[in-house]
Design a protein around this nucleic acid. Structure first.
Lengths: 168, 168
DNA sequence: TATTGTTATACTCTATAACTATA
DNA sequence: TATAGTTATAGAGTATAACAATA
């Protein structure tokens, strides 16, 4: 029977395969797969905050900012002041951004058809449900009782990131 | 019913959640999740070539080399000349590398138990099978008929990476 | 000639931490 | 005080392309 380790390795393999394939397709448009995810999210709802983009893209504030700066430089998105919250930014697709998104979508659509074509109708939903369970089960809240164990590397009581020799 | 787009987004979310969680756990050991994958593969079979590591880690030669150089600098792996093929390198875990691997494994095991605990016995295998289908279906061979379409960006006939404005 | 790996180079993504401005 | 985002900094991973050594 499949183990947790196997799930992890195959999840990794599946994601990386998809990610590379997507990047290869998008290379000629000058955007990365991750940047395109931002475009997709914005095409679904324009004017959301960076914070909200972070959440929907399963990302973090620094990464999203870096990507938005690049997308802004490419003239694909705009970051206006949020009308109601002076701290926030309201991110929108420019006309150019929406056009590029739609152009890319035509191509990516075929790849996604290939993706869903790998499953039968009933399988798809079960599979997606499994993915969602993993997202929920692995979402960032660290598991306390796991963190302190009988390893001599870190001695702190509460699982904080008090690294001994941090690399990043 | 779930679409290809939904599969892609949820696959992304699941992988990134798992990846971040793993990185957070491994931070105190001074290795990344990706580096740990190398250690795991080597623990399963010592003395394989970099090429073989590339394949099993779903990676590429440059990335694997960069990671091995870091792992070698940390004293966790060794790269000897391959006994039969003078071009190849035979990669092995050092004693220190194997010890660290086993120490980390105790902790990661719990996370993996949590992972497999999200599924029933019969579900696990179906889910893993779905992931494998994606890896196979998305594996690097580019889909010819998709590549050239009616976009004005690239005009080449055979889907080669002849980018107009390449960023990376 | 084909293959394994290296070197040089460069950019994106990711993360930490300290900071500003607004709520 | 808490929250949204910025700045500075840094390092890992990823990719291209040209190269050397060996098969």
């Amino acid at each position: 029977m499949g183990t947790g380790h196997e799930i992890a390795m195959e999840l990794r393999a599946a994601y990386l395969s998809m990610h590379r394939q997507t990047n290869a397709h998008l290379l000629k448009y000058g955007v990365t797969a991750d940047q395109f995810v931002c475009l997709v999210i914005l095409s679904e709802e324009d004017g959301i905050t960076q914070q909200e983009l972070v959440r929907r893209a399963t990302s973090d504030p620094n990464t999203i900012r870096a990507m938005l700066v690049l997308l802004e430089k490419a003239g694909l998105v705009a970051r206006k002041k949020h009308p109601r919250d002076g701290r926030a930014r309201s991110v929108t697709l420019t006309v150019k951004g929406r056009e590029l998104y739609e152009q890319i979508w035509q191509e990516i659509k075929l790849m996604q058809k290939r993706l869903s074509g790998l499953f039968s109708g009933s399988e798809v939903d079960m599979f997606i449900d499994g993915l969602k369970r993993i997202s929920a089960g692995m979402s960032s809240t660290p598991v306390k009782q796991i963190v302190e164990s009988s390893h001599p590397v870190s001695e702190n009581e509460n699982g904080e990131k008090k690294a001994v020799h941090v690399k990043r």
